[in-house]
Simulated assay, not measured.
Amino acid sequence: MSTPLRTSYPVPVAELIPAARNLAAELGELPSQNRLMKHLRVGKDKAKAVHAALAAERHLHSVPDPDETTADATTPDTAVETADETFVQVTPPVDPVPEATPTAVAVVPAESEERGISKTDDETTDTAADTGDKERPVRSWPMLLLALPAFVAVWSGWVGLGELTGFGVVHPLPGIADGFTINSAITLPIGVETYAAFALRVWLSGRVPAKARRFAKWSALSALGLGALGQVAYHLLEAAGVTAAPWPITTAVACLPVAVLGMGAALAHLIHTRENGSH
């Protein structure tokens, strides 16, 4: 197998032709300009010149003259001889074509077409570097600094409001683990605020069906609004020295876990449902 030409200085076209001739003999056909660029590690102009020189030497896949085609059709022996000379023997053409205007029709190998080699190594590197700079993501770690104080305030507000509305320490596993207790007030910040953040992400992602995106939008805004109202209600009751919330507030807060569960299940269903309604 031929080895790509490696050099650190410009190589004349005449010195590139032997390596290109070896590549053509290995492939059994005239290599394309893209293949020559990759194999010889040269630019487009030198690859074009080498390609033209090989075409003039081998006369592969040249466009036949209509008169010559007619003559070959009347003399089968000549046609067979011409075919042998074209595909087996390496002979110069009768009328050499100038290098500047070759008449050979190059057949691009499948390997070159699949890889789509149309630029030099330098141009490809520059393009990749430019694309990487433009697509570099924005760092999201500052969100941790923003979320930490919000988490403390929201958590304490919801837990305080839950205790004013009847939420408190319960035994979730009676008869199984009697010593295990949990404060049910923590279900409010976990449920409401987590769903609001999740629905907001689904809405802004743009990767879900339109129906799911609309539902995520309005449910996220509703959850954020309920969270804000819950914080306001707690601080007003706390400032007024109220030890038990009024029944309308208690009713609304008691319904929040059920409402969050329903919205979460509906959004998960819509995310996995196609536009036409089929799964």
Rank of each mutant, 00 (worst) to 15 (best):
F180T: 10
T131F: 09
L188K: 11
D45G: 12
T74L: 11
G166Y: 06
T243P: 02
V258I: 15
R207P: 05
L256C: 05
P174G: 01
G43K: 00
E99V: 12
D45Q: 10
G157N: 08
L148N: 05
L229C: 04
K44L: 12
V258Y: 12
V63K: 07
A52F: 01
E99P: 10
A177K: 01
W247Q: 15
P174Y: 01
A150Q: 13
A14Q: 11
A265W: 07
D84C: 15
P102Q: 08
A24M: 11
T69Y: 01
A212E: 05
S184Q: 08
G43L: 01
G28L: 03
T74H: 09
A153T: 06
H59V: 07
D45V: 14
L54R: 01
G166N: 07
R6S: 13
A106N: 07
T91F: 00
T82R: 14
F151M: 09
I249L: 15
F215Q: 04
V242H: 07
K211N: 06
V260D: 03
K38Y: 09
P149N: 03
D178A: 04
S140T: 15
T187E: 13
S112V: 15
P257S: 09
P174D: 04
A106C: 03
D130H: 07
A104Y: 01
F87Y: 10
P92H: 06
P248M: 07
V97Y: 13
E81W: 15
G160C: 06
D65H: 04
S156D: 08
S184K: 06
V192M: 03
A210R: 04
A265T: 15
I190D: 08
L148S: 11
I190P: 04
L224T: 06
V159R: 15
T3F: 12
L161T: 09
N22H: 13
A24Q: 13
G262D: 15
K119I: 04
N183T: 11
H235A: 14
E26R: 05
T74F: 05
P142T: 02
I186Q: 06
T194W: 05
A110C: 04
A223P: 01
V88S: 10
G227Q: 11
V253T: 10
A53C: 08
G230R: 05
V253W: 01
E68Y: 08
E113T: 13
P93N: 04
Q89L: 11
T75N: 14
V63M: 03
M263F: 09
L164Y: 12
F87W: 01
S8W: 12
I176F: 02
A244P: 04
P4M: 05
Y234D: 07
A199L: 06
K38G: 08
D126A: 11
E81R: 11
G206C: 07
A56I: 08
S62T: 10
H279L: 12
L30I: 03
Y9V: 12
G206T: 14
R207C: 09
A197R: 11
T82W: 14
A216I: 04
D133P: 07
T69R: 03
K211A: 10
S205C: 11
A129N: 01
E123Q: 08
P257W: 05
P66M: 01
D126P: 02
I190V: 15
G175Q: 01
A71N: 06
V169Q: 10
